[in-house]
Structures are given as C-alpha cells and as structure tokens.
C-alpha cells in the first residue's frame, strides 16, 4: 500500500490542568479513505480531529502526514461563516490567503447545490444551506484532506440525510481523505469505509471496524438490514465498554 495520509504513533493529548483528552493512540489513515470517528461526548474525537488538523499539538507521540496532504479543509459543527461577508466571499476565504482570487468559487457553489446564492448573506440562509456554504469553503481548494467535526449534528434529519448523500457523492468523485466525527453510529456507518469507535475518560480507541457495505451508498441503504446489523455490532462494543467502565 502507498504511504498513508496520516500516521499516528503513540499520540496522546493532555490539556493544561492535567485533563487527559486522548490516551496514546497509534493508527494509520489511508489515502482516499472515508473514516468515521464515533463515540460519546468526551471521548476525545474532536481532540483527535484537531490534532490531525494541526490546530493542537500532541503532548506525546508523533503525527506524520503523507506527502502532499498539507492542504486541509475543515468543517465545524456550526457553519462558522463570516456573517459580514456574502456566500461567495466566505467560500473564497481559503483561496484569498493563497492569492488565488475567486477561482472555482462559482463551480464549487454549483457542486454543493448553492447555484445562484453567491450574493446572499449567511443570515438569509437556512441552517442546512449555511452548512453547504461551510462545506463549499472546505472543498474549494480541492484539498486532499477533509476533516469534519460533527458537521450535521445541529440539522434536522431530512436535511442531514440529503447532505450525507451529497457528501458521499462528492467524496466518490474526488477521493479526498475524509475523517468524519459524529456521535451518530448510523451516520458513521452509512458514510464510512471504516469506523473507529472511541470511549471516554480517558479518550481511547475501542475498536476499528471495516464497514461491509456496497461502495454506492444509496439512500435506501438506510433502512436495510446490513446497515442495522453493523450499527448493532458497534453499539454492542460501546455498551460493553461502558459496562466495563462502570464496573471498574
């Protein structure tokens, strides 16, 4: 196999004040893979994502990034848009620091279904549309790596399903390396090739599961038995670990 997009060797994070957010973790994330990161709150999944982005530095261990993977798109739980700038200016933000003007903004807006909204201001848009702008901003440079921190958690289920479907198609077309944090097991299984299950206090990797679903994730898959079975499997792992933690 080719060099991974990320290689973590014994990476741990302790915040000032001694709170351990992530115990030593070793894992590889393959190029072009879609990895879901699930677990209850406080399990260190956001910390892990920020470490991957380079927004945090590990207290221990080392993170190596594959060559040519420095360009990173990041999507937060909130759309995190600049309210004073219109949609086009928000999407062009990553380009502007690279002196690339507005190259590809119109095309990116089309890809995320926001054709015709370039001049709108964030407050004029619904939550789902704001999130689309946020995704457009993250992918406008066509970065090799896309990191997403519970991006659809604040949206209603219909909007979430639509965005899930669209994200999956975009990923299939572009083969970015995607790390997708969510607290929804269903969402993680539906989108990912591989699901990493984490447990809290201290945050650590519980299980690393290859998803056995067809490459094409049709919307109908949501109500299928194979999806339900894999979700049940992950729930069981989480439940057992929680029981173990209670007993300890």
């Amino acid at each position: 196999m080719s060099e991974p997009a990320f290689r973590l060797t014994g990476v741990a994070k302790t915040y000032p004040g001694g709170i351990s957010a992530l115990s030593p973790t070793t894992l590889d994330i393959a190029r072009g893979s879609f990895v879901g990161l699930v677990g209850p709150s406080g399990c260190g999944k956001s910390t892990l994502l920020r470490l991957l982005a380079g927004l945090l530095t590990p207290s221990e261990g080392e993170i190596t990034r594959g060559s040519g993977t420095t360009d990173t798109g990041f999507v937060f739980q909130d759309a995190t848009l600049m309210p004073w700038a219109n949609v086009a200016a928000n999407v062009a933000l990553p380009l502007s620091f690279k002196r690339r003007g507005a190259e590809g903004v119109a095309e990116t807006l089309k890809r995320v279904g926001l054709d015709g909204f370039a001049g709108a201001y964030p407050r004029e848009l619904s939550g789902g549309m704001q999130m689309r702008v946020s995704i457009a901003r993250a992918i406008v440079t066509n970065p090799p790596v896309l990191l997403m921190d519970e991006p659809f958690a604040a949206l209603d289920e219909f909007t979430r399903f639509r965005l899930n479907d669209d994200l999956h198609i975009l990923w299939q077309q572009n083969k970015w390396t995607v790390v997708f944090v969510t607290h929804s097991i269903r969402e993680a299984v539906f989108l990912s090739q591989r699901v990493i299950v984490m447990s809290p206090r201290p945050g650590r990797v519980l299980a690393d599961i290859a998803v056995r679903l067809p490459d094409q994730r049709e919307p109908g898959l949501r109500s299928s038995h194979i999806l339900a079975d894999q979700c049940a499997e992950i729930s069981e792992i989480l439940r057992r670990s929680m029981d173990g933690a209670m007993a300890a």
Binding site: R50, A53, G54, L55, T72, F74, F76, D78, T80, M82, L93, P94, F97, K98
Partner: peptide
C-alpha cells in the same frame, strides 16, 4: 472573535 473562525484562519495560513 469566534474561536473556530480564528482556528480556520490559522489552518489556512493567514498572517
């Protein structure tokens, strides 16, 4: 300032 936006500026290499 929104802390996430600040992080984003850092990530994109803003001076």
């Amino acid at each position: 300032v929104d802390q996430n936006l600040k992080d984003l500026f850092r990530l994109y290499g803003a001076t």
